[in-house]
Amino acid sequence: MNATPSSPGAAGLAAAGHLRVPIALDDRSYDIHIGRSLLTNASSWEGLPKARCAVIVSNETVAPLYLETVAARLRDHYAQVLSVVLPDGEQYKGWDAIERIASTLLEAAADRKTVLFALGGGVIGDMTGFAAAIYMRGVPFVQIPTTLLAQVDSSVGGKTAINHALGKNMLGAFYQPQRVIADLDTLRTLPDRELSAGLAEVIKYGPIADANFLAWLEANMDALRARDPSALAYAVQRSCEIKAWVVGQDERESGLRAILNFGHTFGHAIETGLGYGEWLHGEAVGCGMVMASDLSVRLGLMPPEFLARMTALIGRAGLPAKAPASIGVERFLNLMRVDKKAEDGEIRFVLIERLGQAVMRSAPDALVTDVIRQHSA
């Protein structure tokens, strides 16, 4: 990952006020807009796909805060602006929500030019993108992420999905948005727990792609948790730069893109094993990164100091470092065997072989079992 783009530095976005990070995907390239006051800035909405109808998909938490602001802007571009407001939470990321979105589209006689707008966090983004991918075999959609996790990860790169009782994000499609509008002002209303969950997805970019960014996060974690505007702006900027580069190299996760799942194999098992919604996605990923770091050490890829360093950073981010022992080792292993990266029932992990570089590896069950036991409580 030494070829990732260099960053202009922490002052870059603050000076520019509004940054665009391009995703290079041939005829499906698009921009990630990052900045403040983007929801009310007319330039954010220029050049959107032309259509008669726009449909905003949001949830019961975000809609009261931002839905009318977005709808007002969209009325300048679309003759009809509709909305679908869904329950808030990972436990609602399923077929019922997709049915509600589809019903709204069909009842409005929405054609294949209709544009969907995902206004919310990662759950809303994933479900809206999946609905857009399957309605009339594909309609345009735009991501408007309002959580840190969505701004730095889930809104970028075109992964869309819903959950199944037997596995997280097992039903979905690769389907790219037309644009991502990441308004940093929306982070002001984010609960502390959600902010910490988003920091997990920020942290992962350091060990997998940018050792200097990892050091920057260690130096600035207190500022990030205090919602320092410059620190948050740089964290979003650098995360998007790295993800855009990775997705541009490997859109459909045939190789390189899998490194973005550092900590996710363990993390998805925690989410599924506990029941969706008990832990936030970022909380599970944070714990999963500690476990994956330990496995990297046990396989001889990294020195013991790496585990101590990651455990300390995860703790400072306000994230758990221990998985609930109630899941049980056997269930934990079985859940990881149905992970999308598994091959012929063999669990494959994203591990760190040196700071800034990740690798896909399998590991003996006995070693993985030791990791689970060590990091469960």
Rank of each mutant, 00 (worst) to 15 (best):
I124D: 11
D26I: 02
L217I: 15
H164Q: 14
L351N: 01
S37Q: 15
A292R: 01
L48G: 05
S58W: 06
E218Y: 09
G167Y: 05
A209F: 06
A233M: 03
V180L: 12
E305C: 10
W216I: 01
D192C: 12
A150M: 11
P229I: 09
Y175K: 10
I203A: 10
P5H: 08
L195D: 15
L307T: 10
Q80G: 00
R257Y: 00
A209I: 06
H375C: 05
V202I: 14
I327A: 04
Q91H: 15
P8M: 04
G121D: 11
R354F: 04
P145F: 06
M310R: 11
R298N: 03
Q357G: 11
R227M: 09
D153A: 11
T189V: 02
A258I: 02
A363F: 04
V371C: 02
A24W: 07
L333H: 03
G167K: 12
S230W: 06
G167Q: 12
D96V: 14
M221R: 08
G275A: 12
N334D: 14
Q91A: 15
R361Y: 02
L38N: 00
G255I: 00
T147W: 11
V247E: 08
L260Y: 00
P8K: 05
K243V: 11
E194Q: 15
F349D: 01
L299T: 03
R238H: 13
A161Q: 07
V81W: 00
E194H: 15
S7N: 09
D111F: 08
L116G: 01
G158F: 02
D96W: 11
R227T: 06
I327R: 01
E90L: 04
T311D: 13
M302G: 02
G273D: 08
D344C: 11
A173K: 13
G122P: 03
S83R: 07
R75Y: 10
N163L: 13
A97Q: 12
A133E: 12
D192Q: 15
P140K: 04
Y92G: 02
